[in-house]
Amino acid sequence: MGNVIAVISGKGGVGKTTTTANIGLGIALNNKRCVVVDFDIGQRNLDMILGLENRVVYDIVQVMDGEASLSQALIKSKMNDKLYFLAASQTKDKTALQSEKISKLIESLREDFDYIILDAPAGIESGYEHTIEFADAAIIVVNPEVSSIRDADRAIGILDSKSQKVKDGAEVAKYLIINRIDAKMVQSGEMLSSSDILDILGINLLGKVPEDKGIIDASNQGKPIILNPNSAAGQAYKRIASRLCGEDIDMPELETVQGSFLQKIKGIFK
């Protein structure tokens, strides 16, 4: 039985889809069968980040409405044969999602895959609620910035009241990813540190991802940055995926600048 994990953020533009794509591929690189599902109905994007936009024939709503079978709609990744993708519908409106249909879809995905990663839409509307409804766990993606953290807290609040697991008296696991950390700014006190953010949100840290200009290039090409061995963000996603697969990987320090002696001297006079 597969593990269903929703990737949520509250605020848009914090790197939720990028995170979903990289974690999905990272889990597949750990030799587990993984499917990433785009729940952002009307604003399909995960296909581009994964470089699969030309392969989409059927989407999630067509599968739920019985217009296509699951095996017809699932797209195998070009980069790893353990990774599959199910596209969001680009045309139909968000009311296309219905609880019973989603539940049925997720149950059949559980039979075929070890990990089912759901990319939630931004915001806290019905599309978001439907994404978290049947998830066993949620990954909350934030940037070290006030509006992202506040919106994430609201999204967590809704997760705690609307998830089926919570309604059944169980707990939904919550993991935090802090994305786009600028070590220099944290060190000079201009950016919230990960410990500040953990204090405020009060959930467990899954990983920290540094700001990385290579992300744009990766999305331009449709090749998730985890495939780039020289990228700091790519390496961070690799560690996160391995942690999700149950490995004990230590958390490297990303919030101090390791500079030369001269830079340190300059730093003193800043």
């Binding site: 910035e145 006030v146 506040r150 006190g189 201009e190 919230l192 405020i200």
Partner: peptide, 14 residues
């Protein structure tokens, strides 16, 4: 730096 201001304001807002 303004990070401590951010933390205080966020704590209260949240």
């Amino acid at each position: 730096g303004s990070a401590s201001t951010a933390k205080d304001r966020l704590t209260i807002a949240i």
